[in-house]
C-alpha cells in the first residue's frame, strides 16, 4: 500500500511545517503584546488575551509537532510491516 503510506507521510510533512508556522505565530503575537503593552490606547483586557493566544499557539505547535512525528512513525511502521509480510 505505498499510496496510503505516501499520503500519511505527506500529512506528517504538512503538520510538521504547520507546527513551525504556529511557533512563528506565537513569536509574532509575543512581539505584538510587547508593542501594545506600552501603548496608552490598548484596552485593559488586551495584554492578558494576547498572552492566552500566545500560550495556545505554543501548545498547538507542540500538538502538531507530536502528531507529525506520530504519523511519520506510523508510515514507517506500515511500510516496514508491509515489506516483511
Amino acid at each position: 500500500m505505498p499510496g496510503r503510506t505516501d499520503a500519511i507521510t505527506a500529512h506528517a510533512r504538512v503538520l510538521g511545517a504547520d507546527a513551525e508556522v504556529l511557533a512563528e505565530c506565537a513569536a509574532r503575537l509575543r512581539r505584538l503584546a510587547v508593542r501594545l503593552r506600552a501603548h496608552d490606547a490598548a484596552p485593559p483586557w488586551l495584554y492578558r488575551t494576547l498572552n492566552d493566544h500566545v500560550t495556545a499557539c505554543v501548545v498547538a505547535s507542540a500538538d502538531l509537532a507530536d502528531a507529525s512525528g506520530r504519523l511519520d512513525e506510523y508510515a514507517g511502521t506500515a511500510i516496514h510491516d508491509g515489506t516483511t509480510q
Binding site: L15, A67, R70, E73, Y74, A78
Partner: peptide, 11 residues
Amino acid sequence: AGARAQRAVLR
C-alpha cells in the same frame, strides 16, 4: 503506531 498517530492528530 496507527492508533497513536490517530490519537495525536485528533488531540
